[in-house]
Amino acid sequence: MAQARTLITVPAQAKRGELVLVRALIQHPMENGFRHDENGRRIARDMIQSFRCSFNGKEVFRADLQGGIAANPLMQFTLLAQESGTLEFLWEGDNNFRAQAKAQLLVT
């Protein structure tokens, strides 16, 4: 797979001063490296380690992801709408995993 599938949910429009709910979902196994397959072999660790979201180039949200987080992690947070712009999402992890997504927010 060239890039993991991502799904961003942001309202297309928001009023200035309004709280905007941002959701970012990504397809990833989040294999913690402690599990074994049916033949008893350990399954290699494969985790997303960090998630970052920036708005017009400025970081607005960041998370470190660790072993207890389930596959296909969903990030959900709020932003205070002040100006229109572009949200950029970046996930990075083991085995040089890297996925990016963008979303537009129009503030009126």
Binding site: R5, T6, L7, T9, L25, I26, Q27, N72, L74
Partner: peptide
Amino acid sequence: PGLHPASLWLLE
């Protein structure tokens, strides 16, 4: 659909 993880399989 924005929360349902199977949405990712639908995109694929």
